[in-house]
Design a binder for these strands. Structure first.
Length: 864
RNA sequence: GCCCCAGUGGCGAAAUGGUAGACGCGGCAGACUCAAAAUCUGCUUUCCGCGAGGGAGUGCUGGUUCGAGUCCGGCCUGGGGCACCA
């Protein structure tokens, strides 16, 4: 009996699958389709354990669905534009394109080694002209629809990467890649009108019932829809020049208007800027506000400061009442209208401001059970429900009703209207980078910004850009940008900004439906395959990629290019792969490969292999180069084979949780692989046929058959509910049972039962350890390959035991057990229990009050 | 501050309201071996007991229930997200 040799078997089966084109996706109208997609990788050149986990998870689903009779699409591609290539180019003087394609070649080999059930004929990279040329095509369509526009805007400028960042790419005031503190700059910028879809993007979240609640909440918060009203305050007396119409504010609490103490505007509000131009004191205050940083820490600690302009406005409801106009640093110009009315009694921030500057605090919402004569607001604003008071025509109304009444009055007076405001901003998509998808427009002196005609596509990147220094290599190129204006034919300059790489990844899933189509998206193919039934990736894209992809899908649907309005029907966010960290006494990190783990007196210790120096075992953290706690998948494959690596990464923790890589763990998986093989290898070739019933009856055979059918049921359910770790645990358990019923010396009945068990087992492990499954299947004479075999079925009659062992509790504590026929009625069970001498002994001296029998489960006797 | 999620052995974890700790890792003991590795077998929540057996136990606390890791209320700790958002 030979030890299982993955180095021989694994490549053999990968070749067999490739030869048979087992994973080719076929548009088959007679079968239900299933589209499994994992977020495609950036081609860094090295596969890491996170990839192994992500793609193994998807592969389990893909292989399972295929076996269940679905027509499966499981493609792979490369998110290939982006800064790392430019950085490599700058540091090492290589060409980003060559560097990227080399990396792709290397990673493709590594991914193929994983034995994934991918249709490689659909592979593409976003840096293929064939891909980004099509992207330019739909970009121009969106341009025509007015979803693309250009304006001067204050943008997030990353001084290290020397490019603009989207709001979503600024985390805690720093660039999400470079970590540099982001500066504010005014630039002419390209935007996609994602805000046109803000309502839909919020509303449709409700339809995504197979998305994690967490992700939906994060998107909802990010879009930040709020219902309120816009409302104009008119100046009492002469209005400043240009402000005859008054000041427009946005509020979500029109019900509290009678509690207004002031009107405030942002420091960069046009009114503040006008006043600053005329009054040095205002100018000085505005300048002071600007000095405040934008980082979270600075905002957190920044004191609320204000400046009384001396201007006054009229209260819209209370005739004769006037409110002072302040400039305040806490009001944001880019939210709402950049102006507010302050109601200190019912808004904490307004209250802090009012206390500081001695403004009146007048409560207008009365909390339940408070006396209007005595109710006062102290240091805490009252934001809860209640009845309006001190408010003229709103008196006595509950908050929600008062809001509606106040808005109705504002609208009747012509001073404003109900309004919805979003936190979401339009998506700034231009990047000042050479390694990206060119924006297909030219700038003509005569005709301005001119989109190119479809016939001028693709606008391809030049192959001879110079990446030796920072900045935009496309801009620097000597000739590329010169072009003819499509309108006048005169000289024009190409746009040298390229698109954010998140644009590239916002539609790739649709391109996979037919990656070679002459149009961006082949409608018939997309109609068949989309939406993605199961999308799998990291939680870090909860807002960025997943929001952009939803937006582009809706925009393309409105363009008639897609029929679906949501790209991903099911989303699964998997956890990270972590590892223990090790440090030398001097604090230096040590990689796991150089560490030997020991246990002395039951306590784990780590030493440096080379010198025996004791190491400090640190926290378990996400695998990262800086902590040196990475393990190269290739090294693991070399020692244990691919299947063991896949199995461990799937078996250790629930998929949504972080999983901890450990040498011991993968060794355990490796042991399982070998033990499985031993069972298959020990089964005689002449064993009776596979339905298990052929060998006659005996107790061991019957028990094994029941266990087999139960196993099929349990593993099937585990895969369907993403509880892969539990499913694998059932397989481990079952293997132990097989070992307890060895082929050697087995009866004919048991051999037949084993044959049935092994036949099911080989197919059940297929999604997890596909190579081992094939080798095992072949060993017991399975027809064809596992990838062609249907998923095993179970006989419900065999998943239920004929005799049930019921635990018996007395007053909720387990005191013994009895056997009863399955489905026995409570009265019958009760009799068995009370006749049991052991139970009777337990009940001595007690009076039975009640006997609870849960059919086939448990008995509880209440006695005193 | 607001919104999610989680808390179970030495560790990763498992348990339709029904025998808590399956399965794996680690550990201990034994078998095989000249020896080691590999492999195999047994034990491994904790306390009392030689034992049979018994007590306690799922972050804390109260409740619902014949019965709670699971449901409800209050708290503690950790993780994630959002936040001068009017």
């Amino acid at each position: 009996m030979a030890r299982y040799n993955p180095k021989e078997t694994e490549p053999k089966w990968r070749e067999a699958w490739a030869d048979a084109q087992s994973f080719r996706a076929v548009q088959d109208p007679t079968r239900p389709k299933y589209y499994v997609l994992e977020m495609f990788p950036y081609p860094s050149g090295r596969l890491h354990m996170g990839h192994v986990r992500n793609y193994s998870l998807g592969d389990v689903i893909a292989r399972f669905k295929r076996a269940r009779g679905f027509s499966v699409l499981h493609p792979m591609g490369w998110d290939a534009f982006g800064l790392p290539a430019e950085n490599a180019a700058m540091e090492r003087g290589v060409d980003p394109k060559g560097w990227t394609y080399d990396n792709i070649a290397r990673m493709r080999d590594e991914l193929k080694e994983l034995g994934l059930s991918i249709d490689w004929s659909r592979e593409f990279a976003t840096c293929d002209v064939a891909y980004y040329g099509q992207q330019q095509a739909w970009f121009l369509e969106l341009f025509k629809r007015g979803l693309v526009y250009r304006r001067e805007a204050t943008v997030n400028w990353d001084p290290v990467d020397q490019t603009v960042l989207a709001n979503e790419q600024v985390v805690d005031g720093r660039g999400w890649r470079s970590g540099a503190v982001v500066e504010k700059r005014k630039l002419n910028q390209w935007f996609l009108r994602i805000t046109d879809y803000a309502d839909q993007l919020t509303d449709d979240l409700e339809t995504l019932d197979r998305w994690p609640e967490k992700v939906r909440v994060m998107q909802e918060n990010w879009i930040g829809r709020s219902q309120g009203a816009r409302l104009r305050f008119h100046f009492a007396g002469a209005a400043p020049q240009g402000f005859d119409a008054g000041i427009e504010v946005y509020t979500t609490r029109p019900d509290t208007l009678f509690g207004a103490a002031f009107v405030g505007v942002a420091a960069d509000h046009p009114l503040a800027e006008r006043l600053a131009g005329a009054d040095p004191k205002v100018a000085a205050f505005v300048a002071e506000c600007r000095r405040g940083g934008s980082s979270e820490a600075e905002i957190e600690t920044a004191e609320k400061i204000g400046f009384d302009t001396g201007l006054r406005v009229r209260h819209p409801f209370a005739a004769g009442q006037e409110l002072p106009v302040w400039i305040a640093n806490f009001i944001l110009m880019d939210y709402g209208t950049g102006a507010i009315f302050g109601c200190p009694a019912h808004d904490q921030r307004d209250l802090d401001f009012a206390r500081k500057y001695g403004l009146p605090v007048k409560p207008v919402v009365l909390p339940p059970c408070e006396d209007p004569a005595t109710f006062q607001v102290g240091d805490e604003a009252y934001v809860g429900p209640g009845a309006i008071f001190n408010s003229d025509f709103l008196d006595g109304l509950p908050v929600e009703e008062a809001k509606a009444r106040a808005v109705a009055r504002i609208e009747a007076d012509g001073d404003g209207q109900g309004a919805t405001v979003f936190r979401l901003r339009d998506w700034g998509v231009a990047r000042q980078r050479g390694w990206g998808c060119p924006i297909p427009v030219v700038h003509c002196e005569k005709d301005g910004v001119v989109p190119l005609p479809r016939s001028a596509l693709p606008v391809a990147l030049p192959d001879d850009m110079e990446f030796g220094k920072p900045g935009n290599a496309l801009e620097r190129h000597p000739t590329w940008k010169h072009a003819a204006c499509p309108i006048c034919g005169g000289p024009a300059t190409r746009e040298t900004d390229t698109l954010d790489t998140f644009v590239d990844s916002s539609w790739y899933f649709a391109r996979f439906a037919d990656p070679h189509a002459a149009e961006p998206i082949d409608k018939a193919a997309a109609d068949y395959w989309l939406p993605v039934d199961q999308y799998i990736g990291g939680i870090e894209h909860a807002v960025l990629h997943l929001l952009y992809a939803r937006f582009i899908t809706k925009a393309l649907a409105d363009e008639g290019m897609l029929s679906v309005r949501e790209p991903f029907a099911g989303l699964f966010t998997q956890g990270m792969v972590t590892h223990e960290t090790y440090r030398r006494q001097n604090g230096e990190w040590v990689e796991p490969g150089a560490v030997e783990l020991k246990a002395e007196a039951g306590i784990r210790a780590a030493v440096l292999v080379e010198t025996g120096e004791p190491l400090v075992i640190g926290d378990v953290e996400k695998m990262s180069k800086s902590k040196k706690n990475t393990v190269a998948p290739g090294d693991i494959f070399e020692v244990y084979g691919v299947d063991a690596a896949r199995l461990f990464v799937l078996s250790d923790s629930p998929p949504e949780r972080d999983t901890q890589w450990s040498t011991g763990g993968v060794q355990g998986a490796w042991r399982f692989v070998n033990r499985v093989w031993e069972e298959f290898d020990s089964q005689p070739a002449a064993a009776p046929g596979g339905d298990g019933a052929g060998g006659g009856e005996d107790a061991a055979a019957t028990a094994l058959r029941r266990a087999t059918h139960k196993l099929v049921k349990q593993v099937t359910e585990a895969i369907e509910t993403f509880r892969f770790n539990s499913g694998i645990a059932r397989l481990y358990e079952f293997l132990n049972l097989l070992k307890a019923n060895p082929a050697e010396g087995a009866s004919a009945a048991l051999l037949a039962a084993r044959q049935e068990a092994l036949s099911a087992f080989a197919r059940l492990i297929g999604p997890f350890t596909p190579h081992l499954a094939e080798e095992s299947w072949a060993r017991i004479g399975g027809a064809g390959m596992v990838v062609e075999a249907p998923w095993p079925e179970f006989d419900p009659a065999l998943t239920e035991d004929a005799v049930k062992v019921l635990p018996v509790q007395v007053n909720g504590k387990r005191r013994g057990e009895i056997s009863a026929p399955a489905g026995a009625e409570p009265a019958e069970v009760e009799k068995i229990v009370l006749d049991d001498p052991e139970i009777a002994r337990r009940l001595e001296g007690l009076t039975i009050r009640k006997v609870i029998v849960v059919k086939d489960r448990i008995v509880n006797i209440v006695a005193a």
